[in-house]
Amino acid sequence: MEIQLYQIILIFIFSCIAGMGSVLDEFQTHRPLIACTIIGLILGDIQTGIILGGTLELIALGWMNIGAAQSPDSALASIISAILVIVGHQNIQAGIAIALPVAAAGQVLTVFARTITVFFQHAADRAAERVNFKLLDFLHLSALVVQALRVAIPALLVTVFMNAGSVQHLLNSIPEVVTGGLNVAGGFIVAVGYAMVLNMMGAKYLMPFFFLGFILASYLNFSLLSFGAIGLIVAFIYTQLNPKYQERPQTTTTAGSSAPLADDMLED
């Protein structure tokens, strides 16, 4: 498949958006589910983009930026793997094999970008000294350019220099035992993401609810949506019945009302 000039431009623009999105972490344009879908749309194969996005999203489920800690780079990984899979007519498994090394490389670039932005912070100190509101606004927003280019430049290079032949050549040079193994590993690498989320929740005494979900889903063939509803109901019931959330006045009134009752019974 030949990539047209307009597609290269659109990929560059979206890569900028996803790069900015990955530092802002607001609209989630950097998540595989969104990024792969958009790249698929641009390259005329949205179906592959959506499926690859869903697959990578599950692997990246627990990738998150907490405090100053940096997660693997889902923006660059999603964009590069979607381009290579669609242009090189590869299967989804090949997409996983491409995405993970790219995510690791992207993480290094992200750390670099977030170090460069210290410069913007210092420039802002000087702008505040001169009460220059416009310059402060400009400095804050222009820091996004660093993040945009961090993703857009590698994506542009891949788009321009890769074609179906070179992608196939690249992937064919990988021995079968490696691609087969990656395929197998793709099934359980998600465990790392789950573990990241579970550790972050940090509430050991609530872990029984994790095991409850596990046992129920191991034996029941419900949809994810219905399990979500069950989880919501369980959470409601727990917080409603938990004595520590009972209002103080309520307990005194029940105590007060039960006391006269006991008196009545004694009189009888």
Partner: peptide
Amino acid sequence: EGAGILGLFVMGVLVTKWTKIN
């Protein structure tokens, strides 16, 4: 706490439903 319960419950579901080891 309520959100934590929902999150942990769904994680438990995902662990068994979407992890493939054979």
